[in-house]
C-alpha cells in the first residue's frame, strides 16, 4: 500500500456568480511510497495547496481518486494517522503553545493527562522549550512555524503533509526543519512536502513530483531524474601551452588560472586527458556536470509554454 495515492484529481473553482471557471487541477496523478521524503515542487499558483487541501478533505474534488494509507478522503479516519502543517499557519493567539497542543491532541481523542509529557517533548523537539507558556500572539513567524510542526506531530502520524514548511524560517530554522524531517524518515515516517525552493528539494527528497499548471509533469526518484541527465564533462588542467591546448580542444575557458575544457561525452575524456599529459600538462580535475533539479524544472517550464 502507498502512503498516498492520487489518481486523476480534478478541481475547478468558480467565481461568485458561477460565471467564471478556473480549472486549477487538471488531473493530478502521483504516488508517495511509504517511508520516503516526497517533494511536491511547483511554481506559485501551480495547484500545490489545492491538491493538499483535496487530500485532507478541506476542498471537495470534482473528480479523481485520493487514497491516504489506502483509505478514501471521505472517511474522516483517513486523517487519523496524518499530520498537517498548513501554508502560513495561524493558531488561536489567545492560547499558549502548551494549550494549543493540548487542544490539538483532544481532536485525536487524546485526553490531556495522556499527552502532557508528549507535549513537553514535542515542544523541546521543535526548539520551543522555555516558551511553552507564552501566548501565541507574542510568537514570531518562525516560532509559529515550529509550533505548527509540533501540532502536526501530536498524533505521531505515519504520513506528514507539510505545505511550504520552510517559509518564514531563518537559516537556523531551515536547518532544524531539515534535520527534523530527516529524523522522521529515520523513524519510518513518510513526509510529503511542497515547496518552490529548489535547493530544499535537492538536498532532501527521495522522490519529486513537479506540478505545473495543475498537471504533474515529471515524477520520479531525484537521483534518477538527475543521473539520467549528465550534460557534459569538464576537464581542468594547467601547465600546458595554450597553443597546444587549442589544437586538442577548441572549446575551453580560463578559470582561476586553469584551463577548463568542456567535453560532450565520456568517450572524449580519455583521449583529451591523454593528449594533455602527453603535452606536459597537469590534470587538476575531471568533473561530470549533471543537470540540477533547477535545469529539469526550467526545461519543463519551457516545454509547457
Amino acid at each position: 500500500m502507498k502512503a498516498l495515492e492520487i489518481k486523476g484529481l480534478r478541481k475547478t473553482f468558480r467565481s461568485n456568480f458561477m460565471l467564471k471557471k478556473y480549472r486549477v487541477l487538471k488531473g493530478i496523478d502521483l504516488e508517495v511510497e511509504r517511508g520516503e521524503i516526497y517533494g511536491f515542487l511547483g511554481p506559485n499558483g501551480a495547484g500545490k495547496t489545492t491538491t493538499i487541501k483535496c487530500v485532507l478533505g478541506l476542498l471537495n474534488a470534482d473528480g479523481g481518486e485520493v487514497l491516504v494509507e489506502g483509505r478514501p478522503v471521505a472517511a474522516i479516519d483517513s486523517r487519523r494517522c496524518v499530520g498537517f502543517l498548513p501554508e502560513n499557519p495561524y493558531f488561536y493567539d489567545y492560547l499558549t503553545a502548551r494549550e494549543l497542543l493540548t487542544f490539538a491532541a483532544s481532536l485525536f481523542d487524546l485526553p490531556p493527562p495522556a499527552v502532557r509529557e508528549r507535549i513537553g517533548a514535542l515542544l523541546h523537539r521543535v526548539g520551543l522549550s522555555g516558551r511553552e507558556d507564552l501566548k501565541l500572539r507574542k510568537y514570531s513567524k518562525g516560532m509559529i512555524q515550529r509550533l505548527g510542526l509540533a501540532q502536526a506531530l501530536i498524533n505521531d502520524p505515519d504520513l506528514l503533509i507539510l505545505d511550504e514548511p520552510f517559509s518564514g524560517l531563518d537559516p537556523i530554522g531551515r536547518k532544524d526543519m531539515r534535520a527534523l524531517i530527516f529524523s522522521l524518515r529515520e523513524a519510518g515516517k513518510t513526509v510529503f512536502f511542497s515547496s518552490h525552493i529548489l535547493q530544499d528539494m535537492e538536498m532532501m527528497v527521495d522522490r519529486v513530483g513537479i506540478i505545473l499548471d495543475g498537471v504533474i509533469r515529471r515524477q520520479g526518484k531525484l537521483s534518477e531524474l538527475i543521473a539520467r541527465s549528465t550534460q557534459y564533462y569538464e576537464v581542468a588542467c594547467t601547465g600546458i601551452a595554450e597553443g597546444r591546448l587549442a589544437q586538442i580542444q577548441s572549446n575551453y575557458a580560463v578559470r582561476d588560472g586553469h584551463y577548463v575544457l568542456t567535453l560532450a561525452s565520456d568517450a572524449d575524456v580519455n583521449l583529451v586527458v591523454e593528449s594533455i599529459i602527453h603535452n606536459d600538462g597537469r590534470i587538476i580535475a575531471v568533473t561530470p556536470v549533471k543537470m540540477t533539479l533547477e535545469d529539469i524544472f526550467f526545461s519543463e517550464m519551457r516545454n509547457g509554454q
Partner: peptide, 14 residues
Amino acid sequence: EKKTVLNILSKPVS
C-alpha cells in the same frame, strides 16, 4: 476567516 478551522478539520473531526 483566520483559517484556524483548517487545523481542526484536517484532523479526524467531522
